[in-house]
């Protein structure tokens, strides 16, 4: 049996937190350890992975896949990095958002592509395709900042993604209706644990399944632009809060320090992790260690049965 192909998506409620930056660096790291990597720019409103990779405007983009019905694998373009292919984002003016069938088709196509690992960079916000792809991923990596605004968005995003994930696993129509109405009614005041508790009262059987799903839903957390000493423990704290209040087990991948080396790499359009030698900065070391943590998750996943 061939190794499983992990689908990794980078999401997060807020723009400008470094999702694209980290997605590019993680993809380069994975390709450098010999995994054939597909990097998909699904930030339909503001695609710019090609820019981060130092590429020109790509000839073929996801647009060709979505509107012109080409195969997804045919719109993937090679990059200057070995083992790394890019599904470039849509750079023309485009009303962001996918229709339901386009979304379903995209997720299916992502899964069926012949790569070792697929990385998807999602846009900001909680629009439906972002949530759906995040919820359908094997690893949803959430990037946030040590700021109340970003943290608030992060929790809301995860809650929404989990409910979407639950909904996706539910096959029975009646149970789906019940789930929808309970979420609509109660999710604003109640966390996932309490919500499942309520559903359990109505349908113990469905509730039992949801508890299993709660155990499966494991987001990974990265805190970017850490500045203070306290920030250095923030992913752990967030993981502890997620466990305590939402029942989510999560992977705290670490913090990335705030310094100029990240900004410079973006400015120079050369991904930080591909610089040789690696700049002697905390941010560079942090980025590298977060990418390695992602690499470990991927290797473990691939060897799992």
């Amino acid at each position: 049996m061939s190794a499983r192909k992990p689908l990794i998506s980078f999401g997060g409620g807020k723009g400008g937190v470094g999702k694209s930056f980290l997605a590019v660096n993680a993809a380069i790291h994975l390709s450098s350890i010999g995994l054939r990597t597909a990097l998909i720019d699904a930030d339909f409103g503001g695609a710019n992975l090609h820019t981060l990779l130092g590429m020109e405007l790509p000839r073929t983009t996801l647009w060709d896949y979505i509107e012109k019905k080409s195969e997804l694998s045919t719109v993937m373009i090679g990059t200057s990095h070995r083992n790394l292919w890019l599904g470039a984002g849509i750079v023309r003016d485009f009303a962001a958002g996918l229709k339901q069938f386009q979304k379903t088709r995209l997720i299916k196509a992502l899964r069926s592509m012949d790569f070792d690992v697929i990385i998807v960079d999602l846009g900001a916000g909680t629009s439906s395709h972002v949530i759906d792809i995040f919820a359908a991923s094997d690893f949803g990596i959430l990037v946030t900042l040590p700021e109340p605004t970003a943290i608030e968005n992060c929790y809301r995003f995860l809650k929404t993604a989990f409910y979407r994930h639950l909904r996706g696993t539910e096959k029975i129509h009646d149970a789906k209706v019940l789930l929808d109405s309970t979420i609509a009614e109660k999710s604003s005041q109640k966390g996932p644990i309490e919500l499942i508790g309520e559903l359990m009262l109505i349908s113990p059987e469905a509730g039992g399944r949801y508890i299993e799903e709660l155990d499966c839903f494991r987001p990974a957390i990265v805190v970017n632009q850490a500045r203070t000493v306290e920030d250095r423990n923030l992913t752990q704290s967030i993981a502890s809060v997620l466990k305590r209040f939402y029942g989510f087990k999560s992977w705290p991948l670490g913090e990335i320090a705030y310094d100029d080396s990240v900004w410079l790499s973006v400015r120079n359009r050369v991904p930080l992790i591909s610089l040789s030698p690696l700049p002697d900065t905390q941010a560079a070391r942090d980025t590298s260690s977060v990418c390695m943590a992602i690499g470990e998750l991927v290797s473990e996943f691939r060897t799992m049965r």
Binding site: P146, P148, E152, Y155, E230, L234, S237, I238, V241, F245
Partner: peptide, 9 residues
């Protein structure tokens, strides 16, 4: 002072 609990409790 923890930012991690913001918006939760």
């Amino acid at each position: 002072s923890s930012v991690a609990i913001y918006s939760i409790i």
